[in-house]
Structures are given as C-alpha cells and as structure tokens.
Design a protein around this nucleic acid. Structure first.
Length: 425
RNA sequence: GUGGAUGUAGCUCAAAGGUAGAGCACCGGACUGUGGCUCCGGGUGUUGUGGGUUCGAAUCCCAUCUUCCACCCCA
C-alpha cells in the first residue's frame, strides 16, 4: 500500500515551524494592533467571480493560477488566491463603513495559487496583510507602509529594500498607457513574444520584463512617474515625504507595476536579500481607490498590503531557539503511582507549571533519560515510598534552576508546585 | 505552463551489475529506584513509486511522483 502524501506544493507545518509562523503573526498583531487595526477572518472559499472582478480576468493569478471548482449546485467557487478581495467583500457586505468609512483591518491565513512550486513559492501559502479603508490622503499610504516597515523591524529582518512607485489614477493612467502602447508598437520588432502580447493586453506589464532586448527598448520608454497628473504627482510626493520623515528608507522604482489590476496610485514592494532565491518579494501592496465601489460598495478609497509568511520565515534564516522543555517532569513507578501521577501532573499545570508525565512508564533510568532529553528543568519520582510518606524528592536536571544539575531536595507532595517554582528562581 | 537537476535509515551521506553501509540521532542494558559521561547490544530501510533489461538492479532503460533551480508570474 503506497502511503498518501500531502498534495504538491502544500506543506505540513510541524510544531517547530508552526512556532515560527506564530512568532511572525504575533509581531503582526502587535505592530498593527497598536495602530488600531483589528483582525478580520474571512472564508478561504469565495465565489470565483469575486476574484475575477477584483484582481482582473486577464491577470495570471486569476487566469491561470486560481483553484476554481463547482459546488454541488454548480456555483463556481474558488480558493482565495489573495486576501484583499475577501476583505473588501466583507467590508461592503457588513456595511462596516456605514457610520464612518475609516476602518483598519489585518488578517493572516492560507492562500492558494496553482503555480509550479519552488522555494518561497507554494500552492498553499500563508499571507498576512492589512487594509486601511476610507482615507484617500497620502498619510494613509504612509501609515500603512510605515507599519509594514515596523513589522519587518520587529521581526529583525535586515537587508530589506523598499521600492515605491505610483501608477496614476483614472485621469492619468489611461493617457500613460496609451503613450506607452504607442512606443511599444513602434518598437515591436525588438520586443520578445510575451511583450508583444502584453503591448495589447496589459502594456504596464512590459515594464518589468527581464529579457535584455526588451529592457533596452524599455529604457527609452516614457516614464510613469513623469506622466502622472497633478493630483497623483502631489500624492506621490507627499507619501515619499512622509516616509522620509518617518525614517523609513525607500527608493522609487519607475518600473514597479503589480500583477493585480486593482491598484491605483501608490504601489510598493519590500525585497529581501539572502535565502530567498528569485522569490525575494517579501511584502507588497498599494492603493486601490476604485475597488470597493467596483465590488458594489460606496466610493471608498483604500490602501493595503500582503506579506508571505513562508518568505518572511525563510528570510529570517535558521531558527534561533528551540522550544524549552517542561519545568516539571513526573516519573511514576508502579501501579499506585501511575494512578496518582496524572492527577499530580494536572494539579501542577493548574498552577501554571509546564508539566509532562512519562506516559510510557518503564525503569527509573529510562524515564529519567527521557526527562533529560525532553529538556526538563526538574523531575519528581513518584513511587510507593513517596505516596506513603507524602514527601518527594525534587531533582534538578539541567542548569535551569537555582541549584546545580543533580541536586535533590525533599519537599512535601502537597507543596510540589510551589517548591518547583521556588527552585526555578 | 516551459526547460534542467534531484530522491538511499529520523538527519547528513557512502555503496559505480553480485547479500544495503557509516556518522549523528534513537531504543535497550551494564546500574532490577536516579539522567548526562563511559562501555556493551540493537539498523530502525518498499534505495520515492510502477514497469522493463538481466541469472542478478540502489546502480542500466522507460514512465510517474516529490523537492530544488531557472523562466513565467508572484507573497
């Protein structure tokens, strides 16, 4: 019988790694919670139309990477490929912006894209992100980007570069797109096949093509930043100004366009050097002033971002600390002791002591060896003598405690927990 | 989705057509109620999977899966 395996590109997170995920999420909760962001949890499954309408039918994410399937009634559902669409849907559905459109949310959870897996890229991956609804002002962009920076700082992530761009709004983007398109058509012969296709479908995407010939052509292409309308230029400059004032280092990148159609004005990306190979974008986002309206809500401007938890964990490098072992390890000997031991361990836990019990039993020797390997700070051996006298010996195993390894102290069984706590210092 | 690598014990890796091994880890014992150090003992395995060639396959061939790299794209 061939054993079943996890689906390609979908990974188990064993406790050690789950702990690293938790640490990243805790930093998120802290950094954004302090700024007034509340957690939102939306379903992993949505109607497929939500994503095709928001992210864009023509994008790779929707067009070739989305997990789509009919439910039992034939309705087309999808596993979410990103978090913003669902958050916006929830914002609209619950009318949370009814009284005051300004709402701050963060989220964390699994996302799904059917891509070829690689390091830092998986079919089920995890993102955390935030959305700031209801503010068109550049201060909103700066708050959000500043908080992402803060998050990365809290995580201790060095060697991260923030790139910033503005891709304009309804007023100036179409104008820019047209002039770019004209330019591209004029140089069609020098472009790669993909870029010739992009010229008609999504000209902005040619900007980050990596083919040398295309790069050469694009070097002479009109610049987005130079074609921004007055309002967009002012917004962009204000965002840059705020970030400088915040002490958030960044560089502008005229070529930074994102793969999702809903962005307007600000787009940004945090790139990490090191462990990540070519999947080095660790967080990214931008402003989406039309999306809420597009999904049936009011004219509510918004900014958001998402970060890949796997990529953050990879970028952080090898884990620093192994989980500490239990504070108390209970070693029962003989049947009467086994009957009493579970209750004694539970009583210790109720006082807040991390307490493990050797449920396999065996000789004192083997149980002590297990206690040692579990990294226990103290061990209590429970045999007939101890149960009869109500006195137990508390043994210090490692260096976690006030005494030396091997020290034993006789204490009353009824005061086991307080004795351990006192001995831990 | 395209191209290229990869897979042997829990981990890191040997074994280049002739009975699958080492180190670490793990389990047990010496010490029958006291861990670590030492010594002794134990290989814990469907060589990713399925076929094929061969007297004989971890090794050669085909297929498939996984992971990894580059591309595409993205967090």
């Amino acid at each position: 019988m061939e054993p079943l395996r996890a689906v390609k590109g979908m990974n188990d997170l064993l406790p050690a790694e789950a702990g690293r995920f938790q640490a990243v999420e805790a930093a998120m909760r802290r950094a954004f919670g302090l700024a007034g962001y509340g957690e939102v949890r939306t379903p992993v499954v949505e109607e497929a139309a939500l994503f095709s309408r928001s992210i864009g039918e023509e994008t790779d994410v929707v067009g070739k990477e989305m997990y789509v399937f009919p439910d039992r009634h034939g309705k087309s559902l999808a596993l979410r490929p990103e978090g913003t669409a669902g958050a916006v849907r929830a914002y609209v559905e619950h009318g949370v912006g009814g009284q005051d459109p300004l709402v701050r949310w963060w989220y964390a959870g699994p996302m799904f894209r059917h891509e070829r897996p690689q390091k830092g890229r998986y079919r089920q991956f995890h993102q955390l992100g935030a959305e700031l609804f209801g503010a068109a002002a550049p201060e909103a962009d700066a708050e959000l980007v500043g908080l992402v920076h803060e998050l990365l700082q809290r995580l201790g992530l060095r060697d991260v570069v923030l790139q910033l761009n503005s891709i304009g709004d309804d007023a100036c983007r179409p104008v820019y797109t047209r002039s770019l398109q004209e330019y591209l058509r004029a140089h069609a012969a020098e472009l790669c096949e993909d870029c010739r296709r992009r010229t008609e479908k999504n000209p902005l995407r040619t900007l980050d093509c990596k083919v040398p010939g295309c790069r050469a052509v694009l070097a002479g292409a009109p610049s987005v930043q130079a074609s921004l309308c007055e309002a967009c230029r002012g917004h962009f400059e204000a965002v840059c100004g705020h970030l400088s004032a915040l002490g958030v280092p960044f560089e502008t990148n005229d070529r930074l366009v994102r793969g999702l159609d809903y962005y307007t004005r600000t787009t940004f990306e945090f790139l990490a050097k090191g462990e990540l190979g070519s999947q080095n974008t660790v967080a990214a986002g931008g402003r989406y002033d039309k999306l809420v309206e597009q999904l049936g809500g009011g004219a509510v401007p918004a900014v958001g971002f998402a970060a890949g938890i796997e990529r953050l964990v990879l970028a952080l490098g090898p884990p620093a600390d192994a989980a500490p072992g239990p504070e108390l390890f209970v070693v029962p000997l003989g049947e009467p002791a086994k009957r009493a031991a579970l209750g004694i361990a539970q009583a210790a836990r109720r006082t807040g002591l991390a307490t493990e019990i050797d449920v396999r039993g065996g000789s004192v020797k083997s149980q002590l060896r297990r206690a040692d390997r579990a990294g226990a700070a103290f061990v209590v051996v429970l045999g007939d003598q101890e149960l009869a006298s109500g006195r137990v010996k508390l043994k210090q195993m490692g260096t976690r405690g006030k005494g030396r390894p091997g020290d034993e102290a006789e204490v009353a069984l009824s005061e086991l927990s307080s004795s351990v706590r006192a001995a831990l210092g």
